[in-house]
C-alpha cells in the first residue's frame, strides 16, 4: 500500500514541524503548510489523501480552507484540529464535510488512527 500523503496546516511553526516530523518517522508522507493559502497552492501541485487543519489561523481561517478543499477536492478528507474546543465551530466543521474534529493537544497515536480511518474512507469513496 502506498504511503498516506498528509498535509498538515498550522500557523504555529514549531507545532507544525514537530507533527510533520513525527508523522514522517511513523512511515507516512507528511508535508506542512503555514497558512491556508499555502496549503491550497500545495494541493494544486500535488495530490494529498488527508489534510490535518488547524481551525484558528490568521488570514484564511480553517473553516474557510475546509470549504475550499471540499469544493475543489471532494475526495480529500480533512481532520480539524482545534486549540480550545468550540461546539459551534465543531458543528459547522462537520457540516462542511470534515471527517473529524479533534482537540489539541492530540495524542499522536489517536491522530494517526484517525488519519488512517480518513484515508480508508477516501479509498472507499474512490472505488
Amino acid at each position: 500500500m502506498d504511503l498516506v500523503r498528509i498535509l498538515v496546516v498550522d500557523d504555529e511553526e514549531d507545532f507544525l514541524e514537530t507533527l510533520v516530523n513525527r508523522l514522517n518517522r511513523r512511515g507516512m508522507s507528511a508535508q506542512g503548510a503555514l497558512s491556508g493559502r499555502e496549503a491550497l497552492k500545495m494541493m494544486e501541485e500535488k495530490e494529498f489523501d488527508v489534510v490535518v487543519l488547524d481551525v484558528r489561523m490568521p488570514g484564511m481561517d480553517g473553516l474557510e480552507v475546509l470549504r475550499e478543499v471540499k469544493n475543489r477536492w471532494p475526495f480529500v478528507e480533512v481532520i480539524l484540529l482545534t486549540g480550545h474546543g468550540s461546539v459551534e465551530s465543531g458543528i459547522e466543521g462537520m457540516r462542511l464535510g470534515a471527517f473529524d474534529y479533534v482537540m489539541k493537544p492530540a495524542d499522536l497515536e489517536v491522530l494517526i488512527e484517525k488519519i488512517q480511518q480518513a484515508r480508508e474512507r477516501k479509498i472507499l469513496r474512490e472505488s
Binding site: 461546539v87 458543528i91 462537520m94 471527517f99 474534529y101 480511518q117 474512507r121
Partner: peptide
C-alpha cells in the same frame, strides 16, 4: 458513517446543553 454520526452527536449534545 463516522463523520455523520459525529455530526448527529454534536447536535444532540449541543441541544441538551
Amino acid at each position: 458513517d463516522p463523520p455523520g454520526l459525529r455530526q448527529v452527536m454534536l447536535n444532540l449534545l449541543n441541544n441538551a446543553r
